[in-house]
Structures are given as C-alpha cells and as structure tokens.
Amino acid sequence: MSTFASAFAGGLLIGLSAALFLLLDGRIAGISGLVAGLGRPADRSWRTGLAFLAGLVLGPPAFVLLAGGWPVMRIEASLPVLALAGLLVGFGTRLGSGCTSGHGVCGLARLSPRSAVAVLAFLASGMLTVAVGRVLA
C-alpha cells in the first residue's frame, strides 16, 4: 500500500473507532479527555475510559500481529525536550478542552466552530514551532 493509501486507511479506522464509541457508549473519543478522566475514579464513565485506553495501548501490538512488523517510530527530540513538550501538551489540552482526536477527528466531524478554531490554533502553533526550530537549528 502506498503511504497516502495507508494514511487514509488508518484514518478511516481512527474515525470508525470514534463513530463506534459515540454510537455504542455515547461519548466523544477524545484521548486527552479520556486520559484526564483517569484522575476522577468516582466518575461513572471511569471504567469505560480505562478500557478504551487499554485497547489503545494494545493497538500497536495488534497491528504487529496483523502486519508482521512494528510501525516506523523515529523520535528525534531529546529527553528534556520531550519532558517540556509533554508538560505543554498535557496542560494545553486541558486548558483548550481537547487535542487532535477530540477537536480534530470528533469536533470537525460534528462541524463544531469551537473545535475548528482549536484545530487551526494548534496546527498554526505546531507549524510555527517547527519553523522556529528550523531557523534556530
């Protein structure tokens, strides 16, 4: 399969997952929201959120069984940069109420103007960050 075809097919699966989670459980498959929900074990939806995240972690090993090899994973950033990035991603996705899945995959599908603005903001900010890194490097 060409890179574009596997990217599109992978995207179809991601969207199918979000569609099924909505149709079966009634919830938005926003990963940052589900991860943050782990800190609220009193919530009624805590166990289903944990089950979703467990499935998510098992996804790549399942892919290895189906495809025969681990997907390419090239991590360029150093550990201190990854730690800083993780802090920003964790804090930012809570302040902004979502990430690529909640605002992108689910929010854009719902035609939510709020999510569309969030997607434009994190795309612009991500592109600017890479561009600045390119100038400084």
């Binding site: 920003l88 809570r94 902004g96 900010s125």
Partner: peptide
C-alpha cells in the same frame, strides 16, 4: 490551550 498544545506537538 490549543496554542500551548501545538508548541508541545
């Protein structure tokens, strides 16, 4: 929030 997330991303 989306802007900070984008920097980390």
């Amino acid at each position: 929030g989306a802007g900070l997330f984008g920097i980390g991303w």
